[in-house]
Amino acid sequence: MIPFDFEYYKATSIPEAIYLFQNLFLQGRNPLYYGGGTEIITLARTNRIYTEAVIDIKGIPECNVFAHHDHKLLVGSAVTLTRVSEERLFPLLSRTCSEAADQTARNKITVGGNICGRIIFREAVLSFLLADSDILIAGPSGINKKPIHEIFKQRMRLQRGEFVVQVHTDTDYTKLPFIAVKKRRIGSVGYPVVTIAAMKKEQLVRVAFSGVCAFPFRSHQIETILNDRLTPLETRIERAVRHLPAPLLSNTDASAEYRAFVLKNTLLDVLTALEEV
């Protein structure tokens, strides 16, 4: 049960959503765009988020697109993780999305919500980081397409009033060899100790991580180290782990030291498998 009241608006077009946001914002109602809503509801119940109005974007046609179009795969922000998992248009994305939360929750969680959420794991973003995708963003200044590397730095850097409409990915990337592995504390539901998504393009391995630090990331420095095939694999991995962009995460799922152990083992498995491809 949510202890406070908010209003609910279901937008049917991009301009309507933006208009609603601006108006509600000017009235001091701290509006939030609402996708699957799972995170907003759970944070609201425990007073960790406050809003007086939510704007549901699930009724906006552009946000529900999930199709190849003109050499691009378009993934609408309101597409559920289940749909992404079942309609395997981008197998790596399907794989990582099918490991988030649990199956029933994935019927509600959306790609946009997962990427833009406050929960730090945001595993849906990994595939897009690897595929150098573009993010289509709607906001008061119109609709803009931005490279993911520009807009996603630890988290989505959206301006007030902006929301993600779609993610565009070159079709070529959706066909590359890949591996994705999620390691949990125990069992097969829950947040990651380590999630690694990797793909191989032109003999070079690309790797993105979640659970390792307090944010998902892809690091060119780490990829350079890992692709240095003249060095033994285990040495490369040791080196790569010394170049993480932030300290290893320590939380209820794993201590930092144990994460390092899992990270190295998982990297070894992932790279061994990809190098054989």
Partner: peptide, 12 residues
């Protein structure tokens, strides 16, 4: 489709 009704608003 199964849905957890605790993380869905009635208005949805």
């Amino acid at each position: 489709w199964p849905m957890k009704s605790c993380i869905m608003l009635a208005v949805e």
